[in-house]
Nucleic acid binder design. Structure first.
Lengths: 199, 199
DNA sequence: TCGAGGAACATTGTTGACAATTGACAATGC
DNA sequence: GCATTGTCAATTGTCAACAATGTTCCTCGA
């Protein structure tokens, strides 16, 4: 996985995974002191991590009261999010077709293999992780990865309802379809597959 | 202005204004200890504020090294940002045309008056503040303001180059054009004016 | 001259203690 | 009975000291 040097990142990664995999349901409050004991560290890095996740949209904070896991976005908001993700990821794919760097294809192929396996298994956290990694690879490929920080909070908000509304194997085939179109150098087909995949 | 109860927010607001108004140029490093002395408080709230602004895209952080004011987005990234802002704000305006709540028009009119005045003056910080407030009103009007947290970081990244590339009075007239179309209940015209305004 | 090592410094990361705020509930007055 | 006020526990906000890390610059040897 990722080896974060500082505690703040470790805590944030851990909590992020627990939220996205559905282990922490919307509305669940997170107490700084409780988490500090749980992780065996002080409240400082916990605070930083919670602030991090709040800005990513996974938590909502009320001053002097605390944070809790954010609710799924409303239908209206989710619809906007879908369009934003499409815009970002489509731009990234179009940018890739300018260079057609084979390194990215290699990474996507590797991810696909792992993803297929994970979708068959039972570790939902792993599935989420790989799904996210797939799209992250796409976004990172464009313009030196400058879009990632823009894309991540949008992506995360959408994944708040990941666990409960997904046919995993179908999702895998959609990923595979995108990569196939990229291999075949069919830009329009790749963009169309992406658009149909993000809903 | 806004009266934040906690120091963290006060510091964040203050620094945000200084960055957006161009007093703090891209690349400028911000030291926790220096700011703590400057504000007369300890490093704790400063840390929180810097983390805040980092997640908003105004600062970039390197672990164990510190933060500095972010650079303007690349041409490629800026183009994506433009499309994202259009998507969000257009959605918000379309949502308003479902209800046509006159309260929003009143607020926009008030903002326009202040904005016109500020564009004539010399306080660039004030101009930025009011320009941002205008668009924030639009976004807040839709779906109980659920889009604001999505919109803000996108907006802020775009405003990193605000000070150096704007004809203020023209900007005012564009705002006025949008509001005029809303008063006249011409949705298409409002959306078109918005699209032309966000570039 | 140039690069490797390393000491000194500046800066961020972490910690535990204390202060301020909140929300719930009991006591009070009408 | 009902609103108001006081009190208390839980929680976040703030602080100052200490630890760990990164940077700078100097020395030393080839």
């Amino acid at each position: 996985m990722k080896l974060a040097a500082n505690l703040q990142e470790q805590v944030a990664s851990h909590l992020r995974r627990r939220i996205l995999s559905g282990q922490l349901l919307p509305g669940t409050p997170l107490r700084e002191q409780t988490l500090a004991v749980e992780f065996g560290i002080s409240r400082g890095p916990i605070r930083d991590a919670l602030l991090h996740l709040t800005k990513e949209g996974l938590l909502i904070a009320r001053p002097n009261v605390g944070v809790r896991v954010a609710n799924e976005p409303s239908g209206f908001k989710r619809n906007v999010i879908v369009h934003l993700r499409r815009e970002i990821e489509a731009s990234a794919i179009s940018a890739w077709f300018e260079t057609k760097d084979p390194a990215l294809l290699k990474q996507l192929d590797d991810n696909l293999a792992l993803y297929k396996e994970a979708c068959g298994g039972s570790d939902l956290g792993q599935v989420v992780e790989l799904d996210m990694a797939f799209h992250r690879l796409l976004v990172e490929g464009a313009d030196n990865g400058s879009l990632v920080d823009l894309w991540l909070p949008i992506m995360l908000r959408m994944f708040l309802r990941y666990s409960r509304h997904r046919d995993l194997m179908e999702s895998y085939h959609e990923h595979a379809g995108i990569v196939r179109a990229m291999h075949a150098r069919h830009e329009w087909e790749a963009l169309e597959a992406l658009k149909l995949h993000i809903v």
